[in-house]
Design a protein around this nucleic acid. Structure first.
Lengths: 193, 193
DNA sequence: CAGAACACGTAGACACTGTCTACGGGCGCC
DNA sequence: GGCGCCCGTAGACAGTGTCTACGTGTTCTG
């Protein structure tokens, strides 16, 4: 029941999540994670044969957190399908802005190749959820195609905004109106609110 | 007039561009670039005080290449503003797919912070060009906002497509129709083309 | 209950990285 | 001709990820 009876595997991932939030992605060293978990630098190898697999496990934590967050946002939203798409999109952007390090890691595919299979299982459900909502919001549209385009737009919006590229390119735009612009573009001016 | 009278500075950037295309971003080591340029590992320091500055110089080369490419695409396109936006977007995506390593580097802002100022000068003109075209294609729209949203969409499209995320999420979509979907979304079904 | 097998973490070596510093050689300028 | 001074070399340093040999404590087993 003490602090140290949770398996080292979990403690490593915990330490990694903390370190990622505190110091950023480039600080997420194998040896530093081990240090924070209070073990030697060779210990993680028992559970994660390579550094990338440990990073993948940390990213997986991020994907489940994101799924949980969007689930809550959808539960709170009582409006129609269009409003639920907006809620999902808003939750996505909030996540990207509040946990930039984690968001960065989650989409650094060059760091996650080994855990690719597991990651698909965590990120694909979110996309099919979006597809379903899009189909419900606009029954006439080709839902997978529109959902794909919208997803790409959300992702790009999150990235460019985090880099302050959109801020200095568009001048004074704020993120909320940009998001609204994106939603209107892909779903039409629809009566949703 | 021999091969070696071009300054070492340029030779380093050349070697970096080649190495990036041949082996990918993670192979773009300071020491390996120096090896390919035929100098010792300490030599680059004369021209690039830090590794990031060398990477920034390589990325700058990419930005000028991209600008050149879009310029040519626009010259070839004789249609209206709407068609020119499509040409610009197509050139952008082609660049991202044909030179994935360079594209990756160009948007790894964590690797380019030092040369940020110079990079702004090379990427901002492209955006204002897009803004102008959008304004011409749809005079009624808030051009900077629409251009920003469209830019984000292009960027996200390029990223997700490179990672094969869109392919396996949407099933069978091809990139050209996805791009058309995006253009229709932001500019309307417009009579362009 | 004694002994063997094993899970688990330690410690050191290795090749590699980016940065820093001292050094030398070849050029032009007064 | 001799004095500087670019410009590149070479080695050291701390840090990284991976690999391997080594204990130590626990847990099954006969």
């Amino acid at each position: 029941m003490t602090d140290s009876d949770t398996s080292l595997r979990d403690r490593l991932v915990d330490a990694g999540v903390e370190l990622l939030a505190a110091e950023g992605l480039q600080a997420l060293t194998l040896r530093e994670i081990a240090r924070r978990a209070g073990v030697s630098h060779g210990a993680p190898r028992r559970y994660f044969p390579t550094h990338l697999e440990l990073l993948s496990a940390i990213a997986r934590r991020g994907f489940t957190d994101l799924a949980e967050r969007t689930r809550q946002a959808l539960d709170r939203e009582t409006g129609g399908a269009r409003a639920q798409v907006a809620a999902l999109a808003g939750a996505y952007l909030e996540f990207a802005l509040e946990r930039p390090g984690m968001y960065e890691l989650m989409f650094r595919h060059d760091l996650l190749e080994s855990g690719r299979l597991g990651l698909r299982e965590t990120s694909l459900p979110l996309f099919s959820l979006l597809t379903g909502l899009v189909g419900a919001a606009d029954p006439g549209a080709d839902a997978p195609r529109v959902a794909g385009a919208l997803w790409a737009n959300l992702h790009g919006l999150a990235q460019l905004w985090r880099w302050r590229s959109l801020q200095l390119a568009t001048g004074e735009a704020d993120l909320a109106t940009l998001l609204e612009t994106v939603l209107v573009a892909h779903l039409g001016p629809g009566g949703g609110r």
